[in-house]
C-alpha cells in the first residue's frame, strides 16, 4: 500500500489538499512514529486502521480537536497488543519523563536518564 493509499484508509484524518495537518508538534510525532512502525513491519496498516477506528468509535462523537489524543491511545493499545512494550514500562517511562521535566533546572537541557545514572556536570 502506498502512503497516499494508507492515508486515504484512515477515518476522519484532519487534512487539507496537501496532506495531513497538525495542531501541535507532538501530533506529528505520534503520526510519524505510527508510519515508521508500520514501515518496519511491526504491524500492518489494516491492523492500525482497525485499532484507530475502534478507539474513535468508543470515544463517541467529537469535533476533531481530540483526534490525535485518540490516535495516541490507539498507538499505545496496538503497541501493547503487539508486545512492542508493556503497560508497566510505559507508565513508568511517562512518569520518568514528567519527573525529568519537573526537576531539570531551567537553562539545562532536559534529558531522561535511566535510574542510577547521574547527570554529567
Amino acid at each position: 500500500m502506498s502512503q497516499p493509499e494508507r492515508l486515504a484508509a484512515l477515518p476522519s484524518l484532519p487534512r487539507d489538499a496537501d496532506g495531513p495537518v497538525f495542531a501541535e508538534p507532538w501530533q506529528a510525532q505520534a503520526f510519524a512514529l505510527t508510519l515508521q512502525l508500520c514501515e518496519a513491519g511491526r504491524f500492518t496498516w489494516s491492523e492500525w486502521v482497525e485499532t484507530l477506528s475502534s478507539v474513535l468509535r468508543d470515544a463517541g462523537p467529537d469535533d476533531g480537536s481530540r483526534y490525535y489524543e485518540h490516535w495516541l491511545t490507539a498507538l499505545e493499545r496496538l503497541s501493547l497488543g503487539k508486545s512492542l512494550t508493556d503497560r508497566a514500562a510505559l507508565d513508568a517511562r511517562t512518569r520518568d519523563w514528567a519527573e525529568a521535566y519537573r526537576t531539570t533546572p531551567h537553562g539545562q537541557p532536559v534529558e531522561f536518564l535511566p535510574k542510577g545514572v547521574s547527570r554529567e556536570t
Binding site: 507532538w26 510525532q29 512514529l33 512492542l84 512494550t85 510505559l90 511517562t94 519523563w97 514528567a98 531522561f112
Partner: peptide
C-alpha cells in the same frame, strides 16, 4: 500528551 508520545517513542527507540 507530549510526554506520552515521548515515553512511547523512547521505549521503542531503545528496543
Amino acid at each position: 500528551m507530549a510526554l506520552r508520545v515521548k515515553a512511547l517513542e523512547s521505549l521503542l527507540v531503545e528496543k
